[in-house]
Simulated scan of single mutants.
Amino acid sequence: MTLSLAFSPCPNDTFVFHALTHGLVPGAPDFDVTFADVDVTNTAALSGQFDLVKVSYAALPWLLEKYTLLPCGGALGRGCGPLVLVKDAGIASLAGKSVAVPGDRTTAYLLMRLWSAAEPPAHIEVVPFAEIMPAVAAGRFDAGLVIHEARFTYQRYGLHALADLGEWWEDDTGLPIPLGAILAHRERVDPGEATAWIKESVRLAWENPGASRSFVLEHAQEMEQSVVDQHIGLYVNEFTASLGPDGHAAVDALLNRAAAEGLVPATPLVGA
């Protein structure tokens, strides 16, 4: 049996899934792996394209009919939220501004919409994640919404942080920020088995971090080792091993608030 699995080439994902995709997890099947930006996987999952897939938590309202949320392998945490970046440090809000975002169903964009509801931007454009900071630095957009390792590197582009949306969320709710989720296709994958495979892959990654180093760096797209290490240290944490009560509460809080604002369809509680 071979299952299809899609996740990003970012260090946290390649670190987490190295053991699973390299035949190191006993009893796990073989995998046909697709590396794709989260905006791509959010869209592909609508048609049920993959057996296991990493998506944005903000996309769950459109996906839970076909997929089951797994309680491990994803990205949640504290101090790791998306940033709204600007070139002009004098910009105080997004009112009337043009903003590049990494996807229209990403958690980052949903958080930005909640944060800026009173002063919404004038223009939003979806731009591949890697192109956002250069585009803002070049003046193509007034602001950019960034994720992942950009929080470690944005100063190199001469940019300033207008808002840390994770910090805003944590101050407002006391909960971690839910970023990326792992889903299993309801008709093709047993969620209990998939959970066990991924938990073991995470355990092996932590037990021997050096084993995945070449795989992680191969897909890190010119990211230097220090940034890779910071990235993994921030995004692979206790919630990667298990969502737990706080993780589930964070997902429910995000989707319930967004539904109340009319930003996403109502979604049943994901459970504890």
Rank of each mutant, 00 (worst) to 15 (best):
A135N: 11
T153H: 00
Q221A: 14
Y57N: 15
F35M: 14
T43S: 09
V216K: 01
A150R: 00
E222M: 03
P26M: 13
T240K: 00
V270P: 02
G210H: 12
A95D: 08
S201D: 10
T267A: 07
A250K: 03
A28S: 14
Q225A: 15
D190S: 11
A272C: 11
Y157G: 05
G77K: 01
A259Y: 03
L263G: 10
V40E: 06
T240D: 02
L94R: 00
A241C: 05
A220G: 11
G166C: 04
L3N: 04
E149H: 15
A89D: 13
Q221G: 08
V146I: 06
P120L: 09
C10N: 10
K97E: 04
F129M: 12
E131S: 14
M1C: 03
S8I: 08
R140M: 06
T2G: 02
W115D: 10
A194G: 08
L159D: 01
P265S: 13
N208H: 13
L114P: 12
V25Y: 03
P82Y: 00
A89F: 03
A95H: 10
N256F: 11
V38R: 00
G81K: 01
N237F: 12
K97F: 04
V136K: 02
G233Q: 09
D171N: 11
A28D: 01
R213D: 11
S93N: 13
H18Y: 15
V38S: 01
E193G: 12
A44D: 12
L83N: 12
Q155S: 12
N237I: 10
L24Q: 15
Q230C: 08
E224K: 09
G144D: 08
E218I: 00
P265R: 13
V86F: 03
W197M: 04
R140N: 12
D13A: 15
L269M: 09
A75M: 13
I198T: 11
E125A: 15
Y157S: 12
L83E: 10
S93Q: 06
L64E: 09
T240G: 01
S242Y: 02
E119G: 06
A260G: 11
T41K: 03
A89N: 09
A259T: 12
A161G: 06
A89Y: 03
H219A: 05
